[in-house]
Design a protein around this nucleic acid. Sequence first.
DNA 1: ACACACGGGACCTCCCGTTTGT
DNA 2: ACAAACGGGAGGTCCCGTGTGT
Lengths: 207, 207, 207, 207
Amino acid sequence: MQLPTMNSKEPPEKKRKLVEATVKLMLARGYVGTTVEDICAAAGVTKGSFFHYFAGKEQICLAAMEGWSLGWKQIVEAARLDEIADPLGRVYALFEVMANVYTAPQIGVGCLVGTIAQEMAVPNALFRAECRDHFGAWVDGTARLLADAKTAHPPVRDFDPDALAWWLQSMVQGTMLIAKTRTDEAFILNNIAHCRAYIESLFGTAT
Amino acid sequence: MQLPTMNSKEPPEKKRKLVEATVKLMLARGYVGTTVEDICAAAGVTKGSFFHYFAGKEQICLAAMEGWSLGWKQIVEAARLDEIADPLGRVYALFEVMANVYTAPQIGVGCLVGTIAQEMAVPNALFRAECRDHFGAWVDGTARLLADAKTAHPPVRDFDPDALAWWLQSMVQGTMLIAKTRTDEAFILNNIAHCRAYIESLFGTAT
Amino acid sequence: MQLPTMNSKEPPEKKRKLVEATVKLMLARGYVGTTVEDICAAAGVTKGSFFHYFAGKEQICLAAMEGWSLGWKQIVEAARLDEIADPLGRVYALFEVMANVYTAPQIGVGCLVGTIAQEMAVPNALFRAECRDHFGAWVDGTARLLADAKTAHPPVRDFDPDALAWWLQSMVQGTMLIAKTRTDEAFILNNIAHCRAYIESLFGTAT
Amino acid sequence: MQLPTMNSKEPPEKKRKLVEATVKLMLARGYVGTTVEDICAAAGVTKGSFFHYFAGKEQICLAAMEGWSLGWKQIVEAARLDEIADPLGRVYALFEVMANVYTAPQIGVGCLVGTIAQEMAVPNALFRAECRDHFGAWVDGTARLLADAKTAHPPVRDFDPDALAWWLQSMVQGTMLIAKTRTDEAFILNNIAHCRAYIESLFGTAT
DNA sequence: ACACACGGGACCTCCCGTTTGT
DNA sequence: ACAAACGGGAGGTCCCGTGTGT
């Protein structure tokens, strides 16, 4: 007898490879431009396996977005923001994390959720909702940081944490989008710096 | 009887219709997701005519982006920013223009150049360069406004007009992207307000 | 119920059918004049299957030429020329074989390699090389027979076996070409007779 | 008032250019592989003119074959074979002419009639007949030379002038075909030499 | 769990010839 | 005589998903 997967809790190797390949490919070529066969080839898997694990392209894309969000969540968690005493410091630390990740050579430039949203949000209601939720989750986290900062440091200019978090997310998405057309990472750092400067101006901590 | 084109200088009616349809469709479905057949159907033109005017999908897309940029240029020109005495007022007026256009029910939400960039910038070098140039043109115009404002009003916090313009363009792109997943236009107005607030903080004109 | 392929070593039935149909159709209509749809219809196969087995029209054409050459090789081998004691007799026997095949109602008149060469050798480097090699293989075999004959029977007029073999192949190709415009097989036999007469004159065996 | 064509007897410049382009292109790419637009572009003419002079692709191809045959006729006539006293010498002189033309860099390698025949003789009855006639015309001329030679020099081995001429034409076609896959002109000269050697053997004039 | 033959259809490209106008 | 817009349709490619068997 043969043991299919040692740890029945972990997703099978092939399934993981497929999702990884999907993330990488769709990040670069978008949803429609990525074919199931491309994904299989990149994952070193046959189509038979693909359709064993996923009902179709749509499903693996959803899984890839889920994986993407989870990955970011882990990156942020790994930064141990909660160990930073000053709530406003946590916000600035988040900027640091983004600066580090976005300028490091990873799977590729861009945000998978944003890429899918741009292409599929209008024609496909499911993707629209899913992307909105992923954006929303990120925004919720950021809004919480901002709200905490606001509580700790009365801002010189009032703001709605939620609205500001959406604004920040917009900035992130726009930066990732334009970064696809440029090579210099100075642009990314510059954008982050301006965002930080704005936050500082709100809290009156500008030097 | 119908006259094909009275004025031989103007592009033929059908060609214009094709470009318009391309803008509208690609804005919503992206490049790959938009079919030449869709474009022809939307423009009320046969495929035979399509290939009479354009060498292929790529070419009509480039033409569509050109048209998109031109359209924006005309909108901004129509706003007669140069009639505003205060250079900084011109910057704020530009925000007004964007706010008006983005919240008006036009061809659809989003930016065509950004949509193409997201999907095609990585896999297609031609599109990458073209999108970069379109972004660059918009940025140049904005940077000029900012530079003029800087000359007229010494900022309380120094900034590079060019870098700030790229930051603003990123904001625009990110906002358009996320707007595809949301229905409320308050979000767009909120983002613009935050940008304006940042500019105000730079010039020390915040109330 | 039908078993797809019993012997996993043999190429699938459908693949073989496709190659056969390609040979037959391209022989008659040439490369460009033969459509993939025609091939599929003639083979009783769907286009989906076609592209499962072949990357494109070019590939199936190469396979068809390969099959054509292989078929001729088998025909010649079946003639058991090596059992003929006199090397010169083998040459004459080869003429017999050609006469038999060319006048028998087979898949159609003509040579597939020659047909493709005529149409594709100039514009397509791959086909040019491939056709040259197929011609070369046939020529090599014939040249060997001629060299053996020369060793056994000192010719009254010297000749280069290789050059003579190329001359013979030219004759074969020209005959097949012109045969496409004529219906009488006497023409083919007449051409072969003249070639044989020339060989006889070289060896001084003319009656 | 404007004179369309000075000499109303000569075909218009554009018409001639079209035929020339057709010859050149179809020689290289065959009939189906040559598009009307290609021809127009190569001739520096618009499609409007094309369809003014020719009813369609088929017609210009027929004209091109006619022109090709006429060209050869003129080349042979220019050789002034009739000024050669010995009829057999005329035959050998014809070989010289062919050797000169085929090894000179002309419009391209190959025979237009043979190229069209290979591709179109089977599926298109009109082309089949036309090609057969063009071949026949060449064969008739050669057969006459051979018949004259036979009258003047009793051959050591009898032959039918007509059948021998067809055999020679086959050789010519096969040589042109294979030449498309090779670059060395030595091959062409070698083939002609073998043909001449055979004729010599028939007349007993071999050295 | 996985491999692969297979089907149906969509998409881009482009071609031939006509129509319309100069 | 010539130029160009235009139409209809076909051809090559390829893609997603299913079925069948191991």
